[in-house]
Design a protein around this nucleic acid. Sequence first.
DNA 1: TAATAAAATGGGAACGTTCCCAATCGGTTT
DNA 2: AAACCGATTGGGAACGTTCCCATTTTATTA
Lengths: 340, 340
Amino acid sequence: MSAASSRATLIEVAKLAGTSKTSVSRFFGPERERLTPSLQTRIANAATALGYQPNLMARGLKGGGSRLLGVLVADIRNPFSVAVVHGIEQAARTHGYSLIVCNTDNDPEQEQQHLRLLKSYQIEGLIINAAGQPEAQLQALKHSGVPLVLLDREVRQLDVDVIGLDNALAIDMALDHLVRQGYRSILYASEPPAYASTRQERLQRFNQQAERLGIKSQTLILSSSAPDFETLTAFVEHPGSSPGAVLCANGNVTLAMTRSFQQLDITLGQTGLMGIDELDWCELITPGITTLAQPTDDIGHAAVSCLLNQLNGSAQASPVRYRHAPRLQIRGSTTLVPNF
Amino acid sequence: MSAASSRATLIEVAKLAGTSKTSVSRFFGPERERLTPSLQTRIANAATALGYQPNLMARGLKGGGSRLLGVLVADIRNPFSVAVVHGIEQAARTHGYSLIVCNTDNDPEQEQQHLRLLKSYQIEGLIINAAGQPEAQLQALKHSGVPLVLLDREVRQLDVDVIGLDNALAIDMALDHLVRQGYRSILYASEPPAYASTRQERLQRFNQQAERLGIKSQTLILSSSAPDFETLTAFVEHPGSSPGAVLCANGNVTLAMTRSFQQLDITLGQTGLMGIDELDWCELITPGITTLAQPTDDIGHAAVSCLLNQLNGSAQASPVRYRHAPRLQIRGSTTLVPNF
DNA sequence: TAATAAAATGGGAACGTTCCCAATCGGTTT
DNA sequence: AAACCGATTGGGAACGTTCCCATTTTATTA
């Protein structure tokens, strides 16, 4: 019995329950109600007696659906990504789906590889936070009928639903807050915008709005190697006629900038610091770092329901672009204190 | 061609290549070398022409192995867990395996559910960071021939390989460091030790070694609700005849304690603070928090090779208990500075 | 009560692979 | 040149499920 526990099959259950495989199959599918109550209990008993677990591989093979969703994340060690995956997992579970989570470490090469793999597993849907521009592969997937949702980052020339932050709103909220707090010169720090639509959108909106609001603005693109102390020092020492603040495009940048502030001994608040993405430690850096928190669970849930909508055929003709609003978390790093 | 791209099957490739399904199957399996070079190229051409991708569901069904590993994590939002999963993913990928990652949110109920599910997917191995004590289910899995590896936490009465930190060594290193820095009274802060063997081991070793070293010691079990300010205040104000330090059992505790230190306005260093688990922000809290970093990638890799060993039949008779050494990262929070 | 409709159940094929075994194809040896 | 051997190739069954369709049972109507 012990070794057989993994082997209990539909047919064995049927035999024990004195019925046919078809009925047992129905019992475990959506047609359970079509079965006579007495048959239902007989099957239920037999199944539990044998410790039967449907073989999802077999089901996936015959077209009953694999009940698997693919999740392709660009950087699994990014807390934002993990938080979203957490949301996805919750939502998926309540709908009876499991996740194959793949991490590309921001490497387009690995991304291609993983995409091929996910296809092999007959996933019923794919949520992808693209690292490169895997346009061709995704197009192929889409054409072969696999529902697709882009997470956070768009892919050029690919007409599928996108779920993420309302980047324009986020930048507007940030600028509004900073201006309201008295900062008049703003340095926008971002990772290189190439290949990540989110970075481009935010950067573009920043430039646009800064001009519209008549703010003295400047941009700093972080290289992956050494921090750019010169630019930062120059900005802090000559913020123009009024106090300056640094706005960080995402959590990684906030981390890097906080480090730089400390190394250059820049006082938080006196020079403002604000970041998109909420992190555990933002409240711990005295006097606290102001952030725009993304509703990560909501984003995850939205991604899943988007997928399920497509699965149920109730897909929109034109792709949806679902943009979530951030939540402003005000802390000391954007409070201009008199210089003692 | 577009809609057919997902449908290209072994047989179609065989037909195009003018050969049999068996040969094509061999081409994609470990027996490729048995094929004539000319046949190999013919098949390769046909396969790429059709964009063929093996259907892993079918393979999993027929006993060729699902090439899937299950990973069951207790808390996916814990940076330590994510880091280990990252290591697991790397190692798994190089061996041609993919991951089904499930998160239990520390809920034994969900754990049971996920275990059932993973079994359904015919996973070839399971790496589990247990939330509860799912002894029965794991025993059953083991008996049905699925290789098992416990991550970080043991499960009672279950004889399988365990991979994790060398907890005794970690505590010893921490105490050694703290004593060397001049702290003579130590408060050990931990989450409730029930159901998490790691917590028990560390706590036990702490008590044991503190006594052996003749250190004034005390224990604080964090409740999940409100922080225990009284105990902490009392400890800081009456550390006995000499300076006191707080040792945190893991990253979560370090976070909670850092928060408490700030709220109670306790000066880091003057009262020591040290934690097991390295976190992004530990260097950012002035003057930096001393930690014991776990070699997370190594742990992930070890877990996978452990699994593969079992798969290759070269399993040890008695389970291995693989304990990794932490790395001491010294920062200002454990440097006793004169009180100005 | 017979005829008919509706509901419940069962048998068989199919999904795309792997594996076992049989068949064929080279080249050697006598 | 006949016979043989190893290497290479191919045909068919099997894996556990779902789905289509045929069959049986039950309920409804005339």
